[in-house]
Nucleic acid binder design. Structure first.
Length: 950
DNA sequence: ACATGAACTTA
DNA sequence: GTAAGTTCATGTT
């Protein structure tokens, strides 16, 4: 080809970081527990560039030993950068090795950054008549752009953009790319710790460049500035010039561009395959082989095949003149774009995938559709509504799919009667026991349909729940699942209805075509995910957990959430007024003691008052963000230094109480029902627990006298009802005793002893009836500590004991309960061997850090290995109890309803005439939910509010 | 308007 | 030392 030769210089670290963070929410971990995200991300980008552009010359540039020159100039340079993540550190040697096997030159120069190496090489290549493409997302490189030197930037969402002189001029509002240096010098760069001029950000920097052309020009003409800005710029001229120097990429690194060395050679395919195999990169191997086995393909076909709407091609001219365009018309082999499924930046969408999504017209078409629907064995459906609150949301349409790539959308009329009429036609489907229903977050759909008096019956498959069991540490929203498992990007809801807030549309206002595309796509994807997950459930041995716990529980939770709980608003309003008075009183006391008024709720202002004005302590503790720490544990320690401290602590406690509970709860009462409806999250807690939000009813205060008053506001539905609270007593300790088969502890439980006193008696070697309060309290702390994975440090923080006393106590504890200790190390060993731990029902938690070389990271994973099976087993057990109690209440047609779950407690609204039966029922089901060598014990209490019942 | 960190609530 | 959620202040979009 007579074309100008093209050199690609790759900024290695920038692409590695980018690749690593692209996977951050869903890191790639292989069976050896290695995080391979960074390697995979980098290789994807590199192969992508090669495939798209077919460069004839290519090199990858790394930093080495940081920039000694820049550190000499400014010692803070890059000083506050976070330490390189472990996953990136371990990736570097692999990447080096792969590059060697690919015969791609690696450029590094001790004491220089990749920017400098790339800058120098690009200038040398330019002299020899090359066009150079700097492959990096880093904006700093814009200063290097010339007629023959371009930036080749990966963009989020896929594709690349090429920045030449016009793009840089536009982006930075400069006339010459070199002015980018002045621009960066003025505004600074927090990630590189380039200080910049104080008070100058992006906007001001652009203005100055336009006005003065350069940093020097600005400093020479400060008389044209005014006010604060003039003072600041004049006072910081030195800093400005230094910043400019720091931002300048060096062009005199002692490296040489030798064209021959940079030619893109054929890789050592076997060697690369070997390394990829070791890393367990299957799809990447395919991608690699395709990239290089088809080296005869022209740049054009390669680009055509991976082209996307967001992409801007690097050199359109060259592409046009490249030969054999005839292949592109029908795409040759179309696999490559779709088969490289691990490539984060090229994903399938509804526009690139063939599908048949149709809306169903009213009348006959609907009748025929429903007939067809009723003849299916298994159907995926998804409801579209006017909002996210299922209590108030109205149905807009329902999507159905039972065949991949195909589905139907049934719009629901806005008129409520007409809507109900249509729903009635669908009732036989939803209430069919024989048709399996598939969905993503079915709890929502079930709640919405319940508002139309439709019960969803038959077998259920919820993809969100399935994935929660497959990998509880990930997120489970459909977008993430589609991207991870199907390499597919669904239409985003914001694309449809806009960002929330000002101009957000309701689903009803979206065109029917768009509703159909969006809704049926969701149903289609969910169906595809189901195919994916149903096998994985079996492989992870969690099928039973899915069928017998999570799926049945979904209906239980839907019922509890719909039920809600009655709240005494008037009582809370009274409480609020009292709190308000007390808070105001504390406020004026604090202002008087501080000698000025300030925002007590601002930790920043408070820190300054306490540690700079009042100088309460010589060397104040700081938080990780460099503020003074005013955390409770810090302040409590200072309480005797100054009266203000106790007042601040009281102020904080009361403010929290007022804002989070006393004032917030009444606003969360649903108007239509007059009750508070929390939302239980079934797929959030990594251990298998539920969580609760909007509002969170699992953290209603109880420890302090003032706080627990809030519980008085939770009341029965009317005078015919009474609240019943049922608590598992010490369930986690019972589980660890049973799992470890620690006889001494098991016996204590069997004999109904006070377990903390019993522990104290054994550990401190005193008769049970002579145990002191302090001994019992310390024993209690250790008992809980065991569940969390103790350390002497943690224990001494929690008790009055010193570090060495704590260590001694822990040692004696282990000596008293040797099997407990053995059990704990068994869990850690199991995690090391298998990569996960599990609960009594086989619920797994994967612990990728269990073999980390970083002791802190590994320690945390080890504590998880001990705690997850215990916390998780307790969660399993109460879930079993909830399901069986719910079923018994249904079967017996009881008026009593289960309302709340708080990890080891259930709260019921009991119809008074049923109380005796319910007490027996609840206690029996809870205590017999799961059989172990240790009995489970449940305490019951009733009352006219939640405080009395507890 | 949105995201983050600190502080505080629970089991 | 485990597991969560909410509020407020603060800084950037």
């Amino acid at each position: 080809m007579s074309e100008q030769k093209r050199l690609f210089l790759v900024d290695a670290y920038a692409l590695i970081f980018r690749g690593y963070y692209a996977f951050i929410k869903n890191p790639r971990i292989n069976s050896k527990g290695e995080d391979t995200s960074a390697i995979m991300g980098f290789m994807n980008s590199l192969l992508d560039v090669i495939k798209r552009e077919r460069p004839d010359h290519l090199a990858v540039c790394f930093d080495k030993g940081g920039s000694t020159d820049r550190v000499e100039m400014f010692e803070a340079y890059k000083a506050n950068r976070d330490e390189t993540p472990e996953g990136i550190k371990t990736a570097i040697p692999y990447i080096m090795e792969i590059l060697k096997a690919m015969h791609i030159p690696i450029m590094v120069k001790e004491g220089y950054e990749a920017d400098d190496v790339i800058g120098t090489l690009s200038r040398q290549a330019e002299k020899e008549g090359y066009k150079t493409y700097m492959v990096t997302p880093d904006k700093d490189f814009a200063q290097l752009v010339t007629e023959n030197i371009f930036m080749y930037r990966p963009v989020f969402g896929g594709g690349y953009e090429t920045w030449g002189i016009p793009e840089v001029q536009k982006k930075f509002e400069v006339t010459d790319p070199m002015q980018v240096i002045d621009f960066l010098g003025m505004m600074g760069d927090s990630s590189d710790n380039i200080p910049g001029l104080p008070g100058v950000g992006e906007k001001t920097a652009k203005k100055f460049i336009a006005q003065f052309g350069s940093m020097e020009g600005l400093l020479a003409n400060t008389d044209q500035l005014k006010g604060k800005m003039k003072e600041k710029v004049e006072a910081n001229g030195e800093l400005g010039l230094l910043s400019k120097k720091l931002a300048t990429i060096m062009l005199d690194v002692p490296v040489t561009f030798n064209a021959k060395d940079f030619e893109l050679d054929h890789p050592d395919v076997e060697k690369v395959k070997e390394i990829f195999q070791e890393l367990e990169f299957r799809r990447l191997t395919d991608n690699f082989l395709k990239t290089f086995s088809s080296e005869t393909e022209t740049a054009q076909t390669a680009i055509e095949k991976t082209s996307e709407k967001t992409e801007t091609k690097a050199t359109p001219k060259e592409v046009k003149s490249a030969g054999s365009g005839q292949f592109s018309l029908f795409g040759g082999d179309n696999n490559s774009a779709e088969a490289t499924t691990e490539n984060t930046f090229t994903r399938k969408t509804t526009e690139t995938t063939s599908h048949f999504y149709q809306s169903v017209a009213p009348g006959m078409a609907t009748k025929l559709f429903i007939k067809n629907l009723m003849s299916q064995n298994s159907v995926c459906f998804d409801t579209e509504t006017t909002g996210i609150n299922p209590i108030t949301a109205e149905l807009v349409g329902i999507a159905f799919s039972w065949e991949i790539g195909k589905g139907f959308y049934l719009p629901i009329p806005e008129n409520r009667d007409e809507a109900q009429e249509l729903i009635e036609q669908l009732r036989p489907f939803f209430e069919s026991e024989s048709i399996e229903k598939i969905g993503q977050n079915l709890k929502y759909d079930i709640k919405v349909l319940a508002k139309y008096n439709v019960e969803v019956k038959g077998k259920l498959f919820d993809t969100m729940l399935a994935h929660y069991l497959i990998n509880p540490d990930m997120r489970h929203n459909m977008d993430v699942l589609a991207e991870t498992y199907l390499n597919y990007t669904p239409i985003s809801i914001t694309e449809l209805i806009g960002k929330k807030g000002k101009n957000q549309l309701s689903m009803r206002e979206v065109s029917l075509d768009k509703q159909t595309e969006y809704a049926v796509e969701d149903a289609d994807i969910t169906l595809q995910l189901k195919e994916h997950f149903q096998n994985e459930l079996g492989e992870a041995n969690t099928q039973k957990l899915f069928d017998e716990i999570e799926i049945p529980l979904l209906r239980v939770l839907a019922a509890m959430e719909l039920e809600g709980i009655n709240l005494d608003k008037a009582f809370l309003n009274g409480l609020s007024e009292q709190l308000d008075k007390d808070i105001k009183a504390l406020e004026s006391k604090i202002y008087a003691e501080a000698g000025e008024e300030f925002n007590i709720a601002s930790p920043k202002q408070l820190g300054i008052i306490l540690f700079e004005k009042l100088k309460l302590v010589d060397k104040p503790k700081k938080t990780k963000t460099g503020q003074y720490s005013t955390a409770e544990e810090v302040l409590s320690y200072l309480a005797k230094e100054h009266e203000i401290i106790q007042n601040i602590l009281d102020f904080r406690g009361l403010s929290k109480l007022k804002s989070t509970y006393v004032d917030a709860l009444p606003t969360q009462v649903e108007e239509t029902t007059g009750r508070v409806h929390t939302d239980y999250m079934q797929t959030v807690a990594a251990t298998g627990r539920l969580s609760s939000n909007n509002p969170n009813l699992q953290n209603i205060p109880i420890r302090t006298e003032r706080g627990r008053q809030v519980r008085k506001a939770f009341i029965p539905r009317n005078e015919d009802y009474i609240l019943l609270a049922a608590d598992y007593s010490q369930i986690e300790l019972r589980i660890i005793a049973a799992l470890s088969k620690e006889e001494t502890m098991i016996e204590a439980f069997k004999n109904g002893e006070d377990i903390h006193a019993s522990t104290a008696s054994k550990v401190f070697n005193v008769p049970l009836n002579e145990v002191t309060r302090e001994q019992r309290s310390n024993a209690k702390t250790v008992n809980f500590g065991i569940i969390y994975g103790v350390s002497a440090f943690g224990l001494s923080n929690q008790t009055d004991l010193s570090r060495s006393e704590s260590k001694e106590l822990i040692d004696t504890y282990y000596a008293t309960y040797p099997k407990l200790r053995a059990y704990m190390s068994e869990q850690v060993d199991f995690a090391r061997d298998n990569g996960y731990v599990q609960t009594v029902l086989g619920r797994r938690r994967y612990l990728k850090d269990i073999n980390s070389r970083n002791a802190v990271v590994r320690g945390a994973a080890e504590r998880n290995a001990v705690n997850a099976p215990i916390q998780g087993s307790a969660a399993d057990i109460i879930k079993i109890a909830m399901i069986s109690i719910y079923n018994k209440l249904q079967e017996g047609n009881f008026k009593t309803k289960m309302l709340l779950q708080v990890h080891d407690e259930l709260v019921f609204d009991v119809y008074k005439p049923e109380l005796d039966n319910i007490k027996v029922l609840v206690k029996t089901e809870m205590e017999n939910a799961f059989k172990m060598d240790v009995p489970l014990d449940v305490e019951l209490d009733t009352g006219l509010n939640w405080l009395e019942a507890h």
